[in-house]
Design a protein around this nucleic acid. Structure first.
Lengths: 139, 139
DNA sequence: CGAATATTGTACTAATTGTATCATTGTAAC
DNA sequence: GTTACAATGATACAATTAGTACAATATTCG
């Protein structure tokens, strides 16, 4: 369940595009903890109806937020706030989490019988294709 | 008793379709020997109930695995891991498994905000300490 | 054995979701 | 006034999951 009411207030005379207002307010609500990682946002159609705008306008806002890695939109499923790590966790905890994650990965890979070289190669390949798939991200 | 519990863990917000997650995890469990040739999988309805999804979603996953010659689904009988997996399928599965594992690892690391350099470094360190801990030769 | 019933996977359809493409509108620059 | 462009709307589409009816096989029981 996921319907946060997401009360957004649009100003149709402000000169700011609707989709920009939607983007800004969702970002604000995330910062204000009114939205939390993992939360499902209303569907494009539901939010559009609530705001009395075309659902493509909502979709455009969602697309911008998706490209900014703030939300994850999934065709046929819905739209969710991305689960990002709280920025306030310490460096130490941050590294411990990466260490644990990597350790689990390595053990699993070895359990599958792969050699160190194969593992390293796969990590390289995976990083490479990940970067390629996310080209548009830089600025 | 044929029913392995088949503990699968779905992430409904991960962006991967449910049926894909089911496919991947069954493949993994086969490569990990948690599933063996001849094992019977839960019925589409049983697994669906356990995972709280529609049984057609499970059926879709089973169909994909069936087409990949990994399992054999038999109407009225049940679903079984294929008896003699051709070697090329085993090898293919093994690599697909590592690929999926690595991809999950990379995504998770980036999701936690680590850079490519940090990830690579951590993999190196982890491999190194793993080798030292197991004191084995080679390379 | 044989018929009735239960169990299992299959096929087809529907509903819900986001996506892509183009048309319309409004405003600013020329 | 005309043109150019950005914002929004309309329409058709694709992906995922759910609903319903059915077919094949197994099991039960006379």
């Amino acid at each position: 369940m996921a319907d946060k009411k997401l009360s957004l207030h649009l100003d149709f005379h402000s000169g700011l595009p609707i989709y920009t207002q939607i983007v800004n307010q969702i970002q604000s609500q995330l910062v204000n903890k009114m939205l939390k990682p993992g939360d499902q946002l209303p569907t494009v159609r539901a939010l559009a109806q609530e705001l009395r705008v075309n659902f493509n306008t909502v979709a455009r806002a969602y697309r911008i937020l998706d490209e900014a890695r703030i939300i994850s939109t999934q065709q046929g499923r819905g739209t969710y706030i991305i689960e990002v790590p709280p920025p306030e966790i310490s460096e130490k905890l941050r590294y411990e989490s990466l260490t644990a994650l990597t350790h689990r990965f390595i053990s699993e890979a070895f359990r599958l019988g792969f050699s160190e070289r194969e593992v390293v190669q796969m990590v390289r390949d995976s990083l490479k294709s990940w970067k390629e798939a996310n080209e548009e991200d830089n600025e």
